[in-house]
């Protein structure tokens, strides 16, 4: 196994490194390829740059269609305007709370569930795996879920409507399960002999040694919750409970004037400048951008873990 692994890069190097033998057409291709991929990067980045430029531009310059890559009519008053809006802060704080609480609930359910179904001695294991996997292929649909949460549980205008129903992702569960399955059993055996119960083994041995997968799953859930808007939009009417994504959604809806404002959103139908929108978007996405190096690394490894098993 080890020799195979160490051989592979050499072979790949031969495959991609035979520079001298390249045909003329392949050399042309390589130049075109580099140009195309640079183009892909520029097209991907442009909206972000445009967003930043608009955030620091004056409304007049934006409306005149002058703002592309660099701010025109540079100012920071837009930032001040957004940052002094108390509703923005209330909603931003809500997003933080929903993300933290939701992630904690989701991690508690996912990790205990994954651990239990990863133990081969668990009787009824197939059943307990099956009832989870089945929900991947068939689910209740929008309206039965709505009736359950809003009418039956009475969670209209409650934080629980946002953080609880989405608490278990089957993909994450299966990734974690396969990680726990590969956990060296000798450690657990030794701990059991030393007198630890299942709880002790899980809390003191398994979890501390699973930091990588726990971090990946936490990020999966946290990013999902941070970005989510629809459940909050569906179940919350009280402006002071909105997460920042719904605040932003209402801002955009009011500004473009193209959407009916629904669900008691009640944003005043004033014209909201593109600069205000840009600043709000930028502030909403800021934590994601700051964490991006971690996110990318862990997300990629999480997807890989999932695909190996899936």
């Amino acid at each position: 196994m080890v020799t195979e692994l160490s051989k592979t890069p050499d072979i790949l190097a031969v495959h991609s490194g035979g520079a001298i033998k390249d045909s003329r057409s392949y050399r042309v291709f390589r130049v075109v390829n580099a140009v195309v991929l640079t183009g892909v990067c520029l097209v991907t980045l442009y909206p972000f740059v445009n967003l930043i430029a608009k955030s620091f531009s004056s409304e007049g310059q934006i409306a005149a269609g002058n703002v592309n890559l660099i701010p025109r009519g540079f100012n920071t008053t837009t930032f001040q305007a957004v940052l002094t809006d108390s509703m923005f802060w209330t909603n931003y704080k809500n997003t933080v709370v929903y993300t933290v609480v939701g992630t904690l609930i989701a991690m508690a359910i996912t990790s205990t569930y994954a651990y239990a179904i990863s133990r081969t001695q668990l009787k009824g294991r197939t059943f307990f795996i099956g009832i989870a996997v089945f929900t991947m292929f068939f689910n209740g649909g929008l309206i039965p879920n709505y009736i359950l949460v809003a009418n039956f549980l009475g969670w209209r205008n409650s934080m629980w409507a946002v953080v609880v129903p989405t608490a278990l992702s089957i993909f994450n569960l299966l990734v974690m399960k396969s990680f726990f399955e590969n956990f060296p059993t000798e450690l657990e055996e030794a701990a059991t002999i030393d007198g630890l119960t299942t709880y002790g083994v899980f809390g003191r041995i398994v979890l501390p040694l699973s930091k990588a997968v726990l971090a990946t799953m936490t990020l999966f859930y946290a990013v999902g919750l941070w970005n989510s808007w629809f459940t909050a939009f569906l179940y919350l009417d009280d402006k002071s409970l909105f997460p920042v994504t719904v605040y932003l959604r209402n801002l955009i809806a009011a500004a473009t004037g193209s959407q009916e404002i629904t669900g008691g959103a009640g944003t005043d139908a004033v014209q909201i400048g593109a600069n205000i929108q840009s600043v709000t978007m930028l502030l909403t996405v800021l934590p994601i951008i700051c964490l991006y190096p971690f996110l990318q690394k862990y997300f990629v490894s999480g997807v890989m873990l999932g695909s190996v098993k899936g």
Binding site: T112, A132, G140
Partner: peptide, 22 residues
């Protein structure tokens, strides 16, 4: 180990299977 399953199974019943029946 079975106590680990209580919360997840209740969760599945309420938030996945009840709407399905709904």
């Amino acid at each position: 180990l079975y106590t680990f399953l209580i919360a997840p199974v209740i969760f599945l019943l309420i938030f996945r299977y009840l709407p399905m029946a709904g």
